[in-house]
């Protein structure tokens, strides 16, 4: 029974990792951009929600609703002004630019918000739980998982059912040919990054409500997110959800055996998948 509980908790934790990873999966899938600042952007979004909440007194969910369009604009602008100019066959320039962004964001936040731990207060929701027969699960983890599924579902709808999604897939497969068909890759990329920042806002909302956050926690979130994306396979959004779940379950099972093995078990699961499938489980696009 303890194992069933462990696996359920792991799946729900995987929902949080899938949320971290959804935006990354989108930009990585469409433009092969290794965004090393993704984790810090999540923390940045959490601070932005916190500022909105403190200024207006709204609850965090409404705060996120206000923060989302601001972050969409921020992502759009960063992609337009900076990232589009360094994208290419060579992965190093975007790697260094996003590393620079990561260092700048971390230290900028440290100056502005200090190193103190912060939290988004969600009232009684934080500790509420529901009895599901053999296991009891927290409302908050359940809500996180449901949001992850909804975010992935919505992104998939955009990806496969809209003209914008067609442009995403075409640019992902071959930017040169796509641009011959009247698609402007630069603006497609900018919209994709904007959308990714909206998912980052949702991830930040749940990160902030579930645990404390401070300016230094970004990189650890980044590595989990990347593992989820790579396990799932390039460009496969449902794969990303599965990847998050695999990392989450591996972590809780590892922690059940020995609390010090939690993070280690997640990494080992990632390496094991990659050993068998070097391109992840369900790669949609080719590199």
């Amino acid at each position: 029974m303890i194992w069933l509980d462990t696996i359920v908790q792991g799946l729900l934790l995987g929902g949080l990792y899938a949320l971290f990873a959804a935006g990354l999966s989108l930009v990585f899938g469409i433009m092969r951009l290794v965004n090393l600042a993704h984790g810090d952007l999540i923390v940045f979004a959490a601070f932005l929600i916190l500022v909105v909440v403190q200024m207006t007194g709204l609850n965090p969910f409404l705060g996120a609703l206000i923060a989302a369009p601001l972050l969409f604009a921020f992502g759009w602008l960063v992609q337009r002004v900076v990232l589009n100019r360094v994208l290419g066959k060579d992965i190093l320039p975007p790697l260094l630019v996003t590393f620079g962004l990561s260092i700048a964001l971390q230290n900028g936040m440290l100056e502005v918000f200090s190193a103190d731990s912060q939290r988004l207060r969600a009232g009684p929701l934080e500790s509420a739980s529901v009895d599901l027969g053999p296991v009891t699960v927290g409302i908050m983890p359940l809500l996180t998982f449901a949001s992850a599924v909804m975010v992935i579902f919505a992104l998939n709808q955009i990806f496969y059912r809209t003209a914008l999604g067609r442009a995403f897939r075409a640019t992902s497969d071959d930017p040169v040919t796509a641009s011959l068909m009247g698609i402007n890759p630069a603006s497609v990329f900018a919209i994709a990054t904007g959308l990714a920042m909206v998912t980052v806002t949702i991830a930040a909302l749940f990160l902030g409500m579930r645990s404390n956050f401070d300016p230094s926690i970004g990189p650890a979130r980044l590595i989990f997110a990347f593992e989820a994306v790579i396990i799932g396979g390039l460009g496969s959004l449902w794969g990303t959800l599965l990847g998050g779940a695999i990392i989450g379950v591996a972590q809780t099972v590892g922690a059940q055996i020995n609390p010090e093995w939690q993070i280690l078990a997640g990494h080992l699961a990632f390496l094991a998948v990659l050993l068998v499938r070097p391109r992840g489980l369900f790669p949609r696009a080719v590199d």
Partner: peptide, 8 residues
Amino acid sequence: FSLGLIAI
């Protein structure tokens, strides 16, 4: 912070 901006 500046180091990051210089890299960019």
